[in-house]
Simulated assay, not measured.
Amino acid sequence: MSLQVFLNDRLVPKEEATVSVFDHGLLYGDGVFEGIRVYGGKVFLHPEHIERLFESARAIRLEIPMSPDEMTRAVEKTVAANNISDGYVRLVVTRGSGSLGLDIRRTSDPQVIIIADTITLYPPEIYEEGMPLVTASTIRNHPQALSPRIKSLNYLNNIMAKVEGSDAGTVEALMMNHKGEVAECTGDNIFIVKHGVLKTPPIDAGILDGITRRAVLRLAREAEIPSEEVTLTRHDLYVADECFLTGSAAEVVPVISLDGRPIGDGKPGRTTNRLLEAFRDLTRK
């Protein structure tokens, strides 16, 4: 049976899931989205994702034509219709059709699109052996230009940094902020461990307030691992004992080098593996 996509108020075969070429989501990247994991048929950290979606929409003055409860039910309906046990949901809300201009007052009919499918972002060996990173020259958006806390459809900033990583032979790339501090990677938040203390850039470093990032910080507190949200530089990463990334699609991924410099002993560290296992346990609850 064809994949069923939720479009506005009903499920349709993916071949029929279409939007207007005049939609501002297509023309200008004008909209918001969430990427959500599904484990054992259960939508993982669902309330947090729905809340962030509506906050992103509010920040760009986009009126979502559904309530949070209705959106929650629509996601669950789409997951069930596609028999997704372990998979991924892409939830998109566009501004809707408009003119060939920027005026949002000339748009109408925001589109709600929910896709539920399987996903494998990285091969198993990445989680066992770790991944290398390079630093991209493309910096994260300046917070006064477009807040990185808004999960918008305009991902060109991240894509161009991802291109740099791909050109260098890595699957991820580190992005700095406008002050030259560590921000995040193209699709994931970043953590280091130094002398037993878990450290990650604060929200005001110009990063996405990651749902998985929040979950890992909670897991660290529960495991009594000291943690700090603190400004980091590339030097801090170069001399770290461990490093890992977090994201809804990526989960928890060990990092073993940055810009050709081994991090720690060049292998996934003890704290990283401990938090990876704790996160996997959380997804099975």
Results as ranks from 00 to 15, higher is better:
188 D>G: 07
230 V>P: 04
123 P>L: 05
136 A>P: 03
1 M>V: 14
129 E>N: 07
271 T>G: 08
54 F>K: 00
202 P>C: 00
243 C>Q: 00
64 I>H: 03
276 L>Q: 06
174 L>D: 10
47 P>E: 15
43 V>Y: 14
168 A>Y: 05
246 T>P: 02
10 R>F: 11
100 L>A: 11
180 G>I: 05
142 H>F: 07
228 E>D: 03
179 K>I: 07
204 D>R: 04
16 E>C: 10
272 T>A: 09
218 R>Q: 13
4 Q>K: 15
36 I>D: 11
153 L>Q: 09
76 E>H: 10
126 I>N: 12
15 E>N: 15
167 D>L: 15
227 S>E: 12
60 I>H: 02
154 N>Q: 14
110 P>T: 08
228 E>C: 06
67 S>H: 11
103 D>Y: 04
107 T>C: 06
141 N>D: 14
238 Y>Q: 01
207 I>M: 02
225 I>C: 05
118 T>W: 10
137 S>V: 09
98 G>L: 07
49 H>G: 10
185 C>K: 06
194 K>T: 06
192 I>E: 03
152 S>W: 02
55 E>C: 08
42 K>D: 14
159 I>E: 09
243 C>G: 00
159 I>C: 14
45 L>Y: 12
103 D>F: 01
22 F>P: 12
113 I>M: 02
232 L>Q: 03
261 R>V: 12
29 G>W: 00
175 M>G: 06
94 T>H: 06
235 H>P: 03
25 G>S: 13
5 V>C: 13
152 S>D: 00
161 A>P: 04
251 E>P: 04
282 L>D: 11
15 E>K: 03
251 E>H: 05
47 P>T: 07
21 V>Q: 06
244 F>M: 00
188 D>R: 02
113 I>T: 11
102 L>Q: 00
80 A>V: 10
172 E>V: 02
169 G>V: 08
17 A>W: 07
200 T>V: 01
209 D>E: 13
133 L>P: 02
132 P>A: 08
209 D>I: 05
185 C>L: 03
163 V>P: 07
1 M>Y: 08
221 R>A: 15
1 M>I: 13
184 E>V: 03
107 T>G: 08
63 E>T: 10
168 A>C: 13
57 A>M: 03
36 I>R: 03
8 N>V: 06
110 P>R: 05
169 G>P: 15
69 D>L: 12
150 I>G: 01
53 L>T: 07
16 E>P: 14
47 P>L: 10
126 I>G: 12
179 K>L: 14
200 T>W: 01
219 L>G: 09
149 R>N: 12
160 M>N: 11
162 K>G: 12
263 I>R: 02
122 Y>D: 08
184 E>D: 10
31 G>V: 03
164 E>R: 03
110 P>Y: 04
178 H>M: 10
58 R>C: 09
183 A>V: 00
95 R>W: 02
73 R>E: 15
58 R>I: 06
277 E>G: 10
29 G>L: 01
205 A>I: 04
73 R>N: 15
270 R>H: 10
152 S>C: 06
91 L>M: 04
188 D>A: 15
